[in-house]
Design a protein around this nucleic acid. Structure first.
Lengths: 146, 146
DNA sequence: CTTAGTGCAAAGGCTTTGCAGCAAT
DNA sequence: ATTGCTGCAAAGCCTTTGCACTAAG
């Protein structure tokens, strides 16, 4: 595996900002590293619990907020009323399955840049477009009636 | 004003589906007609309360769910954990202010169709792209430090 | 009449907050 | 010693649900 580039980087930023590198934070960072499943806080908590049984859900939330402030994670509401966390902080798009809610990253390179219409440019500054491709994923399409 | 095209249309669809046209539902429909502010359920409730003081928030939620089923309104999580309702049910995009969370409709015609990358097309069927143009609106840009 | 819809209140998710105890300078 | 972090529990939003009452067709 790629081995800790993300972890190293986030740890460095924590230290630079004067924040502490606690075992709980390390566990959450490790859970996020290379994780493109866009987990919710609760999913992260469940996953981290396996290696760190005593970590509390509140600490996971606190840690995620801290990590978001140092740009180590990005949160978003893509589907439903729950927040999803993504360690990929570069601008990119998302494909979301209408049925199973699976979320996949879609990088701008694969589809070319998304133009910002003049009407939007005239009314908003520093516009970053983010596309949501809502569709039906292969798994769900094959079990179409289930 | 345009005068009731939306209302007429929704009332017709309610009847066709065998649903009742109650004063509460009419009040919610009137509140949605031509409303492009993407209100939350609570905002709709507050607005409707002015003309219909006894309507309950639960009824507003129930009504919105009913209206969404007959495709008279579309709900979405664009920003934060609250649901926003939009009487515009044709596919379109949204511009959202990073600061004040104001939401504006952006119609595909103004920016041309959004292409679906081959990678997405290969993994998802019936893909509908929806763009979120996140930026800073003119009002917020002028009060940049407030 | 009959059935669906309303309003109230309670319950349910998810997230945030307050605070005592603990850990790391 | 001082500061910040953790974990627990409670509180807070927003939304959904159960149920008796009411009203639409």
């Amino acid at each position: 595996m790629a081995g800790g580039r993300y972890l190293e980087d986030v740890v460095r930023r924590l230290k630079e900002t004067g924040l502490k590198v606690t075992p709980q934070r390390l566990a959450v960072i490790r859970c996020l590293e290379g994780n493109s499943s866009h987990p919710s806080a609760e999913q992260i908590h469940r996953a981290v619990t396996r290696s760190f049984p005593t970590i509390s859900l509140a600490t996971v939330y606190n840690t995620l907020e801290t990590l978001e402030r140092i740009d180590a994670v990005r949160s978003m509401y893509l589907t439903g009323g729950r927040r999803h966390y993504d360690p990929e902080t570069r601008p990119h798009h998302h494909a979301v399955c209408r049925r199973c809610q699976r979320i996949e990253d879609v990088f701008p390179e694969t589809g070319g840049p998304v133009p910002v219409p003049a009407t939007v440019r005239g009314r908003f500054a520093e516009v970053t477009p983010m596309v949501l491709y809502r569709g039906t994923c292969a798994d769900c399409a094959s079990f179409s009636s289930s």
